[in-house]
Write a protein that binds this DNA or RNA. Sequence first.
DNA 1: TTGTAGGCGTTATCAT
DNA 2: ATGATAACGCCTACAA
Lengths: 328, 328
Amino acid sequence: MHDIAAAVGMSRGTVSRVLNGGYVSAEARAAIEAAMTDLGYVPNNAARALKMRRSQAVAFVAHEPHSLFLDDPNIGSIMLGANAALSLADHQMVSLVVESARDNERVARYLSGGFVDGAIVVSARTNDPIIKVISDLALPAAFIGHPPDLAQHIPFVGIDNVGSAVAITEHLVSTGRRRIGMIAAALDRDSGIDRLNGFRDALGPLFDEELIADVPHYDYGSGVKGMRDLLEREPGIDGVFAASDAIAAGALEALREAGRSVPGDVGLVGFDDSTWAVRCQPQLTTVHQPAKELGSCAAQVVLRQLSGETVETTRQLLPTPLVLRDSA
Amino acid sequence: MHDIAAAVGMSRGTVSRVLNGGYVSAEARAAIEAAMTDLGYVPNNAARALKMRRSQAVAFVAHEPHSLFLDDPNIGSIMLGANAALSLADHQMVSLVVESARDNERVARYLSGGFVDGAIVVSARTNDPIIKVISDLALPAAFIGHPPDLAQHIPFVGIDNVGSAVAITEHLVSTGRRRIGMIAAALDRDSGIDRLNGFRDALGPLFDEELIADVPHYDYGSGVKGMRDLLEREPGIDGVFAASDAIAAGALEALREAGRSVPGDVGLVGFDDSTWAVRCQPQLTTVHQPAKELGSCAAQVVLRQLSGETVETTRQLLPTPLVLRDSA
DNA sequence: TTGTAGGCGTTATCAT
DNA sequence: ATGATAACGCCTACAA
């Protein structure tokens, strides 16, 4: 900027003013703009951020992306939704991946360093350093997936896993199934626990502890393993709630190899309404998870905080309509 | 930093030295560190970046992520590979999504603003502003997926699409197939064109223009559409090269609905060796694409430039071994 | 309408 | 071993 001010023989103040839209004469503006393209001037965001205490950037922090990226199509949609909303508000979304302890540490530093004005955090764990940093710095933030239990004041946007599980299970019952099992996944996260609880609640007296297969992840492999397990324990099983569509797809495979037809012999339902659901044969009846909306909603929440609004609803649940297809 | 210097009655210079490891007495260091945790000091990266002209951050720019995230599992693996490599070198990967013209513009500004020291760019198009920015600023960079045609000096890491296509096609021929078609995708990108060219080369006199189905994207839906098309044009088809595993999975579906067995009636091969390949029934014979390595390799290239090394090999191809499974 | 000057939080070069 | 002090590139009163 110094050089361009010198080039046109004016002060840097004036140059700054054409950048930020202050009072400047038409001719001065023209000359300066000419010089800018001429000398290939590019504003330095780092300097601007330092002075303004604003970077116009918002972080999107994704935990455990390994499994998420590969088998859960949601994270991509959530990102896209968030990016679209931030983009509209002229903010840059920068997404940070935390896979290792080292990452966790570094990302925490990054968040507190003035490079971002706020953060969207998906599926953080209870004791993540990230949570502490955000809380300590009062960094405008929104959580997706896990409510941040040790920082109740941080806004959270998610879905009602219990209610959704109840609804889909009731659908299974309404189709006449009586020996209904569940492939429950990720019981170390509350989405997993909630879905199981919803299932149990909805079934009431029909619930049988023996018909729960407990698998680690929301992925295809876990689905085939879980279904085989269930079939072995109860050959007469006639309904299955898979904790995710990917799991349901795996279950479908296991059912096929066992010679069971779907939905003839057994009714099968999933969760997510991801691309899996329509790839399967038969297509899956499932719970629609509004991934894109989750992302854009979280972005809005952060943006509102940034613009000084105090966010009132600290805990926001998006609707998850049932999608009835062919598998049950 | 000012406050903590004041708190211990020392100059900010000394405080800075304990941060960066200069000469400082044990007692001074102890006092300062105590004050730091006490006052909850967090270093300001923006200021440091301004002074050092180094942010310790590298951008990961993903184009057209919509289709990539949803149907091409590669982008996730590439990201993870890049992140791992950068993480090891204590650099923060920040990934930027460009979906709209607006995004493109904003990302270009972001790249030139001093927030990042370099960039990894995946599947850029010829006339992306990004390319110009990188070239103009001489920003250390590496491209993945598309060689940056109008900036030949920017390093590129990728795979040999032509060679890989030749190899997998020859395998198809070696299994005795004679009426071999291809579901060719993304013919507006050079990966798409190269795969088609490899197919044509390998087939020689066996090549028949009529047996090429041209579909827009590397996704499942395109696969079923493409295969139906092929079956209609040539019911006697006995071999198919799908331009990606997702396409092959779709083709499998179309073949099943047409009552053709794989690999009995028709041999089918894919490309990518993504999770699709092992989910299918039968599992796919395909070309292994080293997604993770692509990412880490690109990261290394950028890191080398950052450490002052002049990168010699500006164009680097990673090996793509054939993976023989059950579909051909 | 334009120039001047101070400061945002760091690091680095001098002295001391 | 430590303290001044001058940048880094930008914005913004305040003055002119």
